[in-house]
Design a protein around this nucleic acid. Sequence first.
RNA 1: GCGCCCAUAGCUCAGCUGGAUAGAGCAACGGACUUCUAAUCCGUAGGUCGAAGGUUCGAAUCCUUCUGGGCGUGCCA
Length: 662
Amino acid sequence: MSLLAELQQRFRIPLAQLVGDDPAELASLLDMIKPAQDAKFGDYQANCAMPLGKKLSKPPREIATSIIQNLQIDDICESPEIAGPGFINLRLKQNWLRDQLDSVLQDPQRLGVQPVAEAKTYVIDFSSPNVAKPLHVGHIRSTVIGDALCRILRFAGHKVISDNHLGDWGTQFGMIIYGYRHFLNEAAFQSQPVAELGRLYREVRQTMDYLDKQESLPEQQQRLAALQSQIDELAAQPKSGDKAQDKKVAKELGRLKSQASELDQSIQQWTAKAAQLEAQTGWQQRIQQHKDIRQAVLQETAKLHAGDPDNQRLWELFLPKCRQVIQAIYDRLDVSFDQQLGESFYHNQLSDVVQEFVQKGFAQESDGAMCVFLDGFESPMLIQKKDGAFLYATTDLATIAYRVRTWNPDSILYVVDFRQGDHFQKLFAAARKWGFDNIEFRHVEFGTVLGDDGKPFKTRDGDIVGLEGLLDAAVDAAFQVVAENDDRKPNGPELSQEERQQIANIVGHGAIKYADLSQNRTSDYVYSTEKMVALKGNTAAYIQYSYARIRAIFAKGNVSPASLTDGSKQIRIDHDKERALAIQLLRFADAIREVSVDYRPNLLTNYLFGLATSFSEFYAECPVLNADAEEIKQSRLQLCHLVSGTLKTGLSLLGIQVAERM
RNA sequence: GCGCCCAUAGCUCAGCUGGAUAGAGCAACGGACUUCUAAUCCGUAGGUCGAAGGUUCGAAUCCUUCUGGGCGUGCCA
């Protein structure tokens, strides 16, 4: 049951009488029925009389009156009231609320959420890390948002195929192969292959970075000097007297200065790091011996792609081990995929894709590369480099073809960083040109994770932050809070060390996920460890805590949920807080639907935070076990049961677990 | 240069594709534990929604311009 859908259904008839039954217009008018902004206006409001006033050139209040006259709603609402310019305010009837809750109580699995009428098939592409590199903070958003969307859309009734498009075929493997051939510690590889592969990757990376940076250092220093002299010149300029002109100069000066200081900082960071490397024994020798490492790595990669048996064998040796590392994190995060078809799965289809594009006249050679020129785009999409190698775009096209062949989806979602927006716009345009024009392609984009300084989140040394470390930090912080809270309990601590750790795991991982999901996905967001440590306010912990408080009531009162749902008791809604809680409970279906419209999980976190808040207010004012009368106690237990079920289900749709005790 | 995105309380952010007096969480201040977990609740304070125009009954939301920032921009992914 959706509250909103029910109300909209009732308004359909009187509105059709006014404007006819054009579905688009009707839908837009029905969209103007919303939860009331302010409780004093009632529970819901219909705002459609005002725009109709314009259209029908009658006073909106008059239109509102005629809508109400034809509106059959007295089983759901008190008689509607017209307010202000023509708002129609609706107040739900206690009896109706009670009946609705009673029926949800009989439906613990779906909590009154009916599967969508038209189920669609979705392919959701998310996470997609390079398997040779450790997961870092940048992977959180794609993984967590993608997983939540899978769960939510599935719950809504759609068919969902989650697919992790692993980067398992790129330069990273050239790097590891090179490392294996030159830096291998055989014993370490035998005993701890995964760790050793990680080390090899880092060794090669470091060597390549060193050469890159050393090479570009003079140029950067030159740029810094140039900036500096530009600054000096500008600063030495006498004031022109023209205010606007002076202001412009001052602004330019400020910009140059911040550019210079940023550049200076990065140079200093690098020189410090380089000095550290050079202090290592054998570093100079390393550089001497491997000064061609960058070309060599490309060569190893090219050989792999060309089917060289030695490199192929090494790749087959490494891949499972690399995937094992990543899988461990997915296990920790409780994220799973239906498919994990990486780039390697598509590599032998790429030349066919290019050939087809050429044959159909969609692609042509330009500057030696194979290009797809698309209307509305300044630059073409490259599908083959002049050296013959294929690109990201080529693989993505092959992937689309495979997915359509295999699953025939209505929609393919890509949960990827917003910076790849251009790429996806081109990819989608090319795919439509190719004939896939009845599929919804959607780049579900998200913003960057920033550090406290407002810049992309890095460690103090400028390194990318590893994901495992963040998870550990969140769990540690959660452990502190769990322990503190338990120690402070009125009747002494209740939890064993083991239980505390288990709860800390649930709370810590939940905190990370929730912090991400509660943000509007399109905005950048500032990741602050401090915020994680807090675990109060609008966090997963707050919601989990509400759940645990309910479970504590049930434990203390020895209440079995079955006794509440056998139909022998009826919910009563007398107290204001009970009423608010009841309405919030019935909005669950609407929250699920809203998330599905534009793939925005934060609408579900908003809902759950609202529900937990409603519950906390109820909890503060309405005793449950000690209620004045037995019927009230039973009724409140029923409400509690519905809240705990909704919180648990809602969090599970975000990939977040609950603990029975906290 | 061109394209996309952003600017809302001291901080971090919501604001449901135009609705009534712009919300929440942190942080600050003041209250509430002999009563189901105080990770909570109640209250106070805090805003020219970057600026200026426009569209209309009505704008944080839509349009234009400007300012400030981020990102992308032919052989990385």
